[in-house]
């Protein structure tokens, strides 16, 4: 699905060519600061390689519109930002960003159950712990139903 060919990013990263296949778990290991997150951000086109190219299903990411690509291949960050207001607003946020209509509360609650976040939709999202925030962010991404 993703192919990284001769990729370098600044002075941080000098990757061997890499292929990430669909429906397979690929893990990246390395000491902190070695560029694992940078690789993920490249797949999502949040950054572009200084040298080399990243292919998505055979197409060079440089040829793809960044926003459309991010809607298909969503990245969950390590420390996701939680928007002010309620959990419901946070779940709606991603959908609204993508001009999609938010589903009814019932569907939102189901997703919260799925990620194991036992909170009311009206709770203040800023009061969640780090772990809970990550689960909220995961729920937010599930609702977007991305390809990747």
């Amino acid at each position: 699905m993703f192919e990284l060919i001769g990729v370098r990013y600044g002075s941080i990263l000098d990757l061997p060519d890499l292929e990430i296949r669909e429906k397979q778990v690929t893990s990246l290991t390395g000491p902190s600061g070695s560029g694992k997150t940078s690789v993920l951000r490249m797949l999502n086109k949040m950054i572009s390689p200084t040298i080399g190219k990243v292919l998505f299903r055979g197409v060079d990411l440089r040829e793809l519109n960044a926003v459309n690509h991010r809607r298909r291949a969503v990245m969950l960050s390590q420390e996701p930002a939680v928007f002010e207001k309620t959990i419901r607003d946070n779940l709606h946020a991603g959908l609204l960003f993508q001009d999609k209509k938010p589903p009814p509360d019932q569907a939102l609650k189901k997703v919260l159950e799925k990620v194991g976040l036992e909170k009311s939709l009206d709770d203040d999202a800023l009061r969640l712990s780090d772990g809970e925030r990550q689960r909220l962010a995961l729920a937010r991404v599930i609702l977007l139903d991305p390809d990747v």
């Binding site: 949040m46 991010r70 990245m75 969950l76 960050s77 928007f83 991603g94 960003f97 937010r140």
Partner: peptide, 17 residues
């Protein structure tokens, strides 16, 4: 900045973010 970044990750256009 981290909020803008998060919005971009969720597929927002820079304008929406």
């Amino acid at each position: 900045r981290h909020m803008v970044e998060e919005a971009l990750l969720l597929g927002a256009t820079p304008k929406a973010a």
